[in-house]
Design a binder for these strands. Structure first.
Length: 423
RNA sequence: GGAGAGAUGGCUGAGUGGUCGAAAGCAACGGUUUGCUAAAUCGUCGUACGGGUCACACCGUACCGCGGGUUCGAAUCCCGCUCUCUCCGCCA
């Protein structure tokens, strides 16, 4: 949720931001219901005040006396009016809530204007793009693919998009997860093992609900959602808490399987490991003081980049334009790695600042030591990193003329070898 | 899964259908005093929303696990749910 003050006091700023995001929420309806709601609150509360005053008065009277009974009669009427207004307010509150939740976060001033991925701005490129040799092919065309991946049996057991990783494939996944977690540990980021299922309150706080409900797998019987990213349990780790200013910034990381229905996505980019319904990812989360959040975003991106550098994978960093960034973000960088076999960029990390959008929903605050007031923290998160596409880049970029795959040196301690030989 | 007990402010813990935002104690914060490093004493000490203000002040309302209900009036009575603890069962 964005700050209501912005809506009330400078709606033109909100309007411009919403336009920049190419979002079509109805701001006039929001403002209209807000005004009506506030008027009704005054009405309900003054009726209630009257009722309470009478209550105090009645407590002094002899119970059952004529004066008392007369008062009861008067108050019955008031009570009826109160109940009517209160019911009207509750109804209005519901539509107010729906509308308020439909307002996206406003993009930062440094976010470029634009509506599609074409308008994202490349701010950095690292590593050398290798020339495509004849033996370079997409990973899904490796003739020994079934040595490390089994899509067919995954489809049998669960459905498409749920591959089995086999032998060295499975070990590579585990190695990458371990490498990412160890790197975070070395950077002083505490690791959390997170629940893979969360309740509705948590999904609402991070913004998956209400608008992205269709993207999550659900355990309907229990009212739980399979997490699409560890961001959800991580952010909610501190939900409903008031922190001390001295505790900030707080950094945490966590590995999880991520479950995404990917409803409505078809076509070429779903081949192989490019887009699957379940994948492993290590997520980094930051809770910080507002004045530091944009610096923290830069260092978060630097950290994610350092992982790709250590793996020796060429990548580019994009600053997302207003129309291509998420609903809840104020500023977002994506890291894309080059996959030489497919001759395309694959997104492996997204680093974002949410300012107080999530913390307002999740009620995560800190006590300002100067004013003594409770303020919302700013939250940020970034992938560090998503496993399957990194795996794709390792496979495709590392493919040698003899069909073997040369592994990044950083993974040698985890894999116990420097290449995967074709059997 | 079965049986029982419970859920009150940062913590412990009282609470009669009405004067209860809620006793008391602890912790915390501010002052005073003695002094020596621990006491004594006075005061302050929840959050959110709405009104109000340049901003404070101030006023109102809500919140005693959550959601309903009864009532002129609910922390208190009734119903449903959630969670915690104990015992039993089952099970990595």
């Amino acid at each position: 949720m964005i700050d209501l003050k912005i809506l009330r006091e400078s709606p033109e700023i909100a309007r411009a931001g919403i336009q920049k995001k190419r979002n079509d929420c109805d701001l006039d309806a929001v403002m209209d219901v807000d005004a009506k709601r506030r008027k009704l609150i005054v009405e309900v509360e003054s009726l209630r005040a009257e009722q309470k005053a009478a209550n105090t008065e009645m407590s002094q009277l002899q119970k059952g006396s004529p004066e008392f009974m007369e008062k009861v009669g008067e108050m019955k009427d008031l009570s009826a009016r109160f109940k009517q207004s209160d019911a009207a307010l509750k109804e209005l509150d519901e539509s107010w809530n729906d509308l308020y939740l439909s307002v996206p976060n406003l993009p930062h001033e440094t976010v470029p204007d634009g509506s599609t991925e074409e308008d994202n701005v490349e701010i950095k490129a690292w590593g050398e793009i290798p020339d495509k040799e004849p033996y370079h092919v997409p990973h899904y065309d490796f003739d020994w693919l079934d040595q490390i991946l089994d899509f067919k049996r995954g489809t049998k057991v669960t459905g498409s998009g749920f591959p089995f990783y086999v032998g060295d494939g499975a070990r590579l996944v585990r190695s990458l997860v371990s490498f990412f977690l160890d790197q975070a540990h070395e950077s002083g980021i505490q690791e959390l093992g997170v629940p893979f299922l969360v309740n509705g309150d948590s999904a609402l706080a991070t913004g998956q609900l209400p608008d992205k409900e269709g993207q999550m797998y659900q355990a309907v019987e229990d009212g739980l959602y399979a997490i699409p990213t560890a961001e959800v349990p991580l952010t909610n780790f501190l939900r409903d808490e008031i922190l001390e200013e001295a505790e900030l910034p707080i950094y945490r990381c966590g590995h999880s399987a991520c479950f995404r229905r990917e409803a409505g996505s078809h076509g070429k980019d779903v081949r192989g490991l490019n887009r699957v319904h379940q994948f492993d990812k290590v997520e980094i989360l930051k809770w910080v003081k507002p004045e530091t959040s944009y610096d923290e975003l830069e260092s978060l991106r630097d950290y994610a980049e350092s992982l790709l550098q250590k793996l020796g994978l060429p990548y580019r960093a994009l600053l997302m334009c207003g129309g291509d960034m998420g609903f809840s973000q104020t500023k977002q960088y994506d890291l894309e790695v080059w996959a030489v076999g497919q001759q395309r960029w694959l997104e492996v990390s997204s680093c974002s600042n949410f300012e107080s959008f999530q913390s307002r929903r999740a009620r995560i605050r800190y006590r300002d030591s100067q004013t003594g007031k409770n303020e919302f923290v700013h939250t940020l998160n970034g992938s560090g990193l998503a496993v399957p596409r990194v795996l794709v880049a390792i496979l495709e970029n590392g493919l040698q003329a003899d069909g073997s795959v040369k592994l990044p040196e950083a993974l040698a301690p985890y894999m116990g070898k420097d290449h995967i030989a074709r059997a």
